[in-house]
Design a protein around this nucleic acid. Sequence first.
DNA 1: CTTGTTTTTGAGAGCTACTGTCATTTCATG
DNA 2: CATGAAATGACAGTAGCTCTCAAAAACAAG
Lengths: 196, 196
Amino acid sequence: MTNGLRERKKAKTRAAIREHALRLFEEQGYAATTVDQIADAAEVSPSTFFRYFPSKEDVVLVDDVDAVVVGAIRAQPAGIAPVTVIRRAIREAFDNLSPEQWELERRRQRLVLAVPELRVRVLHQMTEAIDLVAEAIAERAGLPADDFSARVVAGAAIGAMLAVLPTAYYADGVRPGDFDRVEQALTLLENGLPLG
Amino acid sequence: MTNGLRERKKAKTRAAIREHALRLFEEQGYAATTVDQIADAAEVSPSTFFRYFPSKEDVVLVDDVDAVVVGAIRAQPAGIAPVTVIRRAIREAFDNLSPEQWELERRRQRLVLAVPELRVRVLHQMTEAIDLVAEAIAERAGLPADDFSARVVAGAAIGAMLAVLPTAYYADGVRPGDFDRVEQALTLLENGLPLG
DNA sequence: CTTGTTTTTGAGAGCTACTGTCATTTCATG
DNA sequence: CATGAAATGACAGTAGCTCTCAAAAACAAG
């Protein structure tokens, strides 16, 4: 059976490790927290930690939004400019997050932006996102999955978001997860880049 | 004095470490090569290795092009669309590389694209590049250094390049360092993204 | 050249992320 | 309850990286 005691226990252990890890990272900082400490707090052995997460970094890098965004892209009506598709899809994806998911997202984002090692990994996720988004865009337009211009559009959109992300988070009143500036950036792209 | 025996010897040691490291990486693979092996080959102690390069990764990640590109951006004549400025600046920067620099670049690129850890670090360099390019663009246009639209333009341009880079390198006859596709991508951005 | 100062180096100890093995425990099923 | 499968923990080992301290090399000045 898929839902025996085993599965539930595994999910619980996984959640416990992640929760204690996040807490310790927030309390002591990322680098200052060792895997042994996390394992202790979660009451598992260090070996078990690595059985659940391939690396210390991966505890923070979950990423369940990408798939949602891609789904939303595919669900957009036909006949809309690709950048608009991306903007709407992102908006929808984030509007559909539950409050708990929001909270988790905020904690993750804060850590990820603060810790260089994590930032670097997130960037990698972004390039994977480029691939996914490019394919979705191309498919919508009836083009081959590796279409050149689709890649350019996806890359430009994600690059633009990436460029304004830090300002979105660091800005005074803006709470993480407030994607106004991201939308502004994409709107700018939609309307054509400024000329000079 | 800036040019005593000391300086020259340091430069030589640095070059030796880098050269042996690249060679070993190419021969045995990146992960399979230990810092101790590199140190042995370069005839220095492991401690000395880390005195010259903060990490094993940094031996490959030199990056002297960014500054050149930014300089070229600043040197572009006035009254040109920002994306065009970026495209021309990149073209000029790479046209001015010496054959030896080209050779080194090609070896680096090959490694960097093949090894995930290195890829990830290169992406980080790209975000730093976004900052630099955004500032240069803003300054050219007489805008504040942290201007929002300048960031969007820089992000979109670099994102677009990033998206087509792998295809540029993996494509059949294309030798690394042949930046035709990068130029194509930027041209696409210049002319406005496809709409339907 | 000699002496004194600064810089560079090497040796070694130590921490931590991560991997692999193997015996033990925990759950599922007939 | 017995048997098979999965999860766990204890342990040992590798490698990247940091730190300290003393020896060696390069420089400046008399």
